[in-house]
């Protein structure tokens, strides 16, 4: 079984981003960049499948700037076999990303795609579902458990009311939720070994994919700030404020 994982280069989850004063976007100059945390979970899951003998090869793909090589290297250090960088300087919308991934799935003959459920920068939560539609394959989104069984994959999904389990024919697309696994750290020897693993670089055009979109970002603004509140001295004072000032209880 061949597994493809999609990894996105995003700002580190713990960086507090600021909106640019001209309202065109957020200021990422010198910001620490990382693999999207959900993609890290996807990489970990793929490697565990390989270690368990269920997967033969794990390919990590990122669509992004040349610098996304760093995130692909990390995925290789964690145990992926090889990388693909689909290089583009502009940020693509999820549908375009899904189209690029579809082309790679078909070119490589992929049986299982594991993606994150959500990019923590654009907060879209779309690519996996779109890719599944384009490939006409089943989807197991927001997975907290995934098990390959007799040519199928059983996925337990985190849903608003609890959990749901579905059985999917392969090929399939799975997207990861936070509790699917706890990603390992790359060891120094593996980081060294990763330097020799191959990364192919290509463009969307090489794959014959049109990446335009009909969405335009008109402006980006900071959120409304909450005004600073007060500290209360005791539980009694708190209850008094809630009853008589805020009038919420």
């Amino acid at each position: 079984m061949k597994v493809l994982v999609g990894i996105k280069r995003v700002v580190d989850a713990y960086v507090r981003v600021r909106v640019k004063s001209d309202g065109t976007g957020v200021d990422l100059t010198n910001a620490k960049m990382a693999i999207n945390p959900f993609c890290e979970i996807a990489v970990e899951e793929a490697i565990r499948l390989k270690e368990a003998g269920a997967a033969d090869e794990v390919i990590a793909v990122s669509i992004g700037p040349a610098a996304a090589q760093e995130q692909i290297r990390t995925a290789l250090a964690l145990g992926s076999d090889r990388g693909i960088l689909v290089q583009t300087e502009e940020a693509l919308e999820p549908l375009a990303v899904a189209k690029v991934l579809k082309a790679i799935v078909e070119k490589e003959g992929i049986d299982l795609v594991i993606l994150g459920k959500q990019s923590i920068d654009t907060d879209n939560n779309q690519v996996g579902q779109m890719l599944a539609a384009l490939l006409n394959v089943p989807q197991g989104t927001f997975a907290c458990k995934a098990e390959v069984k007799d040519g199928k994959i059983e996925v337990t999904r985190e849903i608003d009311g609890g959990e749901q389990t579905v059985m999917l024919d392969l090929p399939a697309v799975v997207t990861t939720d936070l509790r699917l696994n706890e990603p390992r750290y790359a060891s120094l020897p593996n980081i060294m070994k990763a330097k020799k693993k191959p990364i192919d670089t290509l463009s969307a055009a090489d794959l014959g994919v049109e990446v335009g979109s009909n969405i335009k970002t008109l402006s980006v603004a900071p959120p409304a700030e909450r005004s600073a509140g007060v500290k209360v001295e005791s539980v009694a004072a708190l209850v008094d404020k809630l009853k008589n000032e805020a009038k919420v209880i």
Binding site: E93, P94, L95, A98, D123, N124, N125, Q126, V127, G128, Q129, M130, L131, A132, A133, L134, Q139, T141, F142, R157, E158, I159, D160, S213, N214, I215
Partner: peptide, 23 residues
């Protein structure tokens, strides 16, 4: 934009070959 809507709508958008605007 519940887990049901998030699971469904991007799949619909891709079938219609349009983008989705989330949340």
């Amino acid at each position: 934009a519940t887990t049901t809507g998030k699971n469904l709508m991007p799949r619909v958008a891709a079938l219609l070959d349009v983008d989705q605007i989330s949340d």
